[in-house]
Design a protein around this nucleic acid. Structure first.
Length: 479
DNA sequence: CCTGGAGTTGTCCTA
DNA sequence: TTAGGACAACTCCAG
């Protein structure tokens, strides 16, 4: 082993296993492990309260697995790193790449600076299966359609990196001078709903591995169908872990693939799960190649879309008070847990954009603030997808009907009733359209519309045809 | 350069 | 009751 001192800058790679930057640094000798809370002026990467809450606990776990020799700082990353290099005679600075536009920019600047200063500066890919720079069409431009991106761009390229082991022996340097306490990062300063702390998430690398192992072992067997049913536990719930890098996509990829090899009958379900990881890659590729994705319509014809401006409707949506049970259940799941089942995300997204005709920015902002798995690439790409303005987006005439969707995917109402206790006594066959239920049945269930549960805030049929009209106006306008 | 097939997740109407 | 087609038009992508 060499006897060099390497600074490892942790960001969205809060794990020891399959961590290329850490792995390489350890081979060089001792390691100064740091985390910097760089509260950028840039809104793109400033976190919502739920994310900060998650991050705090994730850092707690990481610090403890690093013998409490993870050093915390707050402020400008460039200045802090330069100061540490001087103070501790650092030979090299290693990190794993982040792919948000603001980070890419900042990293390039720092790397440039370090290289000119003669520091051994290396960055690695720890959070994507394929390097977005390399997944290109034969004409060297990025893909804009998922299927060819995934099949031709990803699957037929080199296989993803096999996950690395945890470094065997860590020789860690503690900075007693400049480092501050984790608590002083102030990640818990924002008021959080009390129940968030009582969630059954086990934050951190060990928790992530448990979640993956449990998922692979059983729920994966019925992933393709079960993932659409919010009351079932067939989704992986890996999203926050993947976002913060408590687990790598490579670990998930190979765990699923290997399970598929062992039991061949799983094939369909494994491929389905892998392609969801593929969608994560696609979103990141889009953001990387189209840095305006978080605010700008990917299809510019949507710039003239007649969005409505209505705070009342927006608030009702945010608070889960729309009068449409599947919508309200989803929005309250988000409020109460910082998470929402994927199927329900699509339904509430479609409702905001196509029934309420509110700009997808409102949805993206709300999700960004409330989700523990808030991720710039996934959030931006998915909101544009559901709005129809995105790459390979849902066709405009695909408008989810919250009644049908509820009946179809939450047939016995288990999910909906969990988050809408005021409707718990309503027979499931009436659950998704309470405004059509006869008075005696409502009374029996203790439901008083307008009092214990809202009347629908808009008419489904009328708003649907409104949306179709609005979308039609887009295509005729350009002609 | 041209061409043709394809494009995550739905709904509604009709026969 | 149920299955199939319409719903637009366009852009993307590979050959």
């Amino acid at each position: 082993m060499m006897n060099k001192k390497t600074l490892v800058w942790f960001r969205q790679d809060l794990r020891l296993s399959d961590n290329p930057a850490l792995y390489q640094a350890v081979l060089n000798g001792s390691v100064l492990a740091i985390y910097i809370l760089d509260e950028q002026k840039n809104k793109d990467i400033s976190m919502g309260a739920a994310s900060m809450w998650w991050l705090h606990h994730s850092l707690t776990k990481l610090a403890s697995s690093l013998d409490n020799k993870l050093n915390f700082y707050k402020g400008d990353a460039k200045k802090i790193i330069l100061k540490l290099i001087k103070e501790y005679s650092i030979d090299g600075v290693y990190w794993n790449r982040c792919y948000e536009p603001a980070r890419v920019e900042q990293d390039a600047e720092i790397k440039n600076l370090l290289i000119h200063a003669g520091i051994d500066c290396q960055d690695f890919n720890a959070s994507l299966l394929w390097e977005p720079e390399l997944v290109l069409k034969s004409d060297k431009t990025p893909y804009k359609v998922f299927t060819p991106f995934y099949r031709n761009g990803c699957l037929s390229a080199q296989a993803p990196r096999i996950p690395l082991e945890k470094p065997k022996k860590l020789n860690l340097v503690k900075d007693p001078v400049h480092a501050i306490d984790l608590d002083d990062l102030g990640l818990l300063k924002n008021k959080l709903p009390a129940f968030l702390a009582e969630q059954d998430w086990i934050i951190g690398e060990d928790g992530a591995q448990d979640v993956l192992a449990t998922f692979i072992q059983k729920p994966l067997e019925n992933y393709k169908e079960g993932r659409n049913v919010p009351a079932k536990k067939n989704v992986s719930r890996l999203s926050p872990y993947l976002h913060f890098g408590e687990i790598s996509p490579n670990q998930a990829w190979y765990a699923a693939k290997n399970r598929g090899f062992v039991s061949a009958s799983l094939g369909n379900n494994v491929d389905c799960f892998l392609s969801e990881l593929g969608w994560r890659e696609f979103s990141h590729s889009l953001l990387y190649n189209f840095p305006d994705l978080p605010r700008k319509n990917f299809q510019s014809k949507f710039d003239s879309f007649p969005w409505r401006n209505n705070q009342q409707l927006l608030t009702a949506w945010q608070q889960g008070q729309t009068g449409y049970p599947i919508i309200d259940a989803g929005m309250r799941e988000l409020l109460q847990t910082g998470y929402m089942h994927n199927r329900v995300r699509m339904i509430v997204g479609s409702f905001l954009v196509k029934n309420l005709l509110l700009h997808w920015h409102h949805g993206a902002d709300w999700f960004w603030d409330r989700l523990v798995d808030a991720d710039l690439a996934n959030n931006s790409a998915s909101w544009q997808w559901i709005a129809g303005s995105g790459a390979d987006a849902a066709p405009y005439f695909r408008i989810f009907n919250p009644v049908t969707q509820g009946e179809k995917f939450d047939t016995d109402g288990v999910y909906t009733k969990r988050f809408l206790p005021e409707l718990a006594a309503l027979p499931s066959k009436y659950l998704f359209s309470p405004w059509e239920v006869k008075e005696p049945i409502l009374r029996e269930a203790g439901v008083i519309l307008g009092k214990t549960y809202p009347w629908p805030i808009i008419d489904l049929k009328a708003s649907r045809s409104n949306a179709l009209e609005a979308f039609k106006s887009l295509s005729t306008e350009i002609k």
